[in-house]
């Protein structure tokens, strides 16, 4: 079975109907003409090369592609790029400071060894950022954290350390 050679260019825009989108991505207004059937996840990864957003199941189950859309966690694989036009999107790339200083949630994941392969991590962290920034009261019991993470699947860790990292991050962040 022949495989695609590394470096083979794969067109990210086919000849099907297109639309112009303008989306604020990580604080920067991005304008592109894209296929109307392009998913936001593909737009981020293929058009903008923001490959921190991972793609797992592409039907909303695994949570790997979770980003913030207008400040709320949402699946980028269940959102068309055209739907996101006029909206604000934040990805995992927005979290660490320019000098590489980690966001408190990223630091807590590192400290607690809350990742192994790391594939689910960007979606996990963006979901938690959305939760922390929502201003809604947080339930930091094991059960409450597991409920909050129930839309993000991890196949490596068994979740123990992720739960610990969320609690540690919550304690390190100012209340509210």
């Amino acid at each position: 079975m022949p495989r695609a050679r590394p470096g083979t260019s794969v067109p990210s825009v086919s000849s099907d109907p297109r639309a112009r989108v303008s989306i604020t991505i990580n604080g920067e207004l991005v304008e592109r003409e894209v296929s109307i059937r392009m998913l936001l996840s593909d737009f981020l990864r293929h058009e903008l090369r923001l490959t921190g957003t991972h793609v797992g199941c592409e039907h909303g189950v695994c949570g790997a592609c979770t980003v913030l859309i207008d400040g709320k966690a949402g699946r980028s694989c269940l959102t068309l790029a055209v739907q996101a036009s006029g909206h604000e999107v934040r990805t995992i790339e927005s979290l660490a400071a320019e000098d590489g200083t980690l966001h408190p949630i990223q630091a807590a994941f590192q400290d607690c060894h809350a990742l192994q392969c790391g594939y689910c991590t960007p979606g996990m962290i963006m979901n938690i950022v959305g939760m922390f920034e929502s201003g809604e009261p947080l339930d930091l019991s094991d059960e409450g954290i597991r409920l909050a993470l129930s839309g993000n699947l991890c196949r490596c860790t068994g979740y123990q350390n992720i739960v610990a990292a969320v609690r540690k991050a919550a304690e390190s962040l100012p209340a509210g």
């Binding site: 909303g60 949570g63 979770t66 859309i69 709320k72 966690a73 949402g74 699946r75 269940l78 959102t79 979901n127 959305g130 939760m131 909050a148 129930s150 839309g151």
Partner: peptide, 9 residues
């Protein structure tokens, strides 16, 4: 109903 990220949208 699903999970919060799904219910958000």
């Amino acid at each position: 109903v699903a999970h919060i990220p799904i219910r958000n949208r």
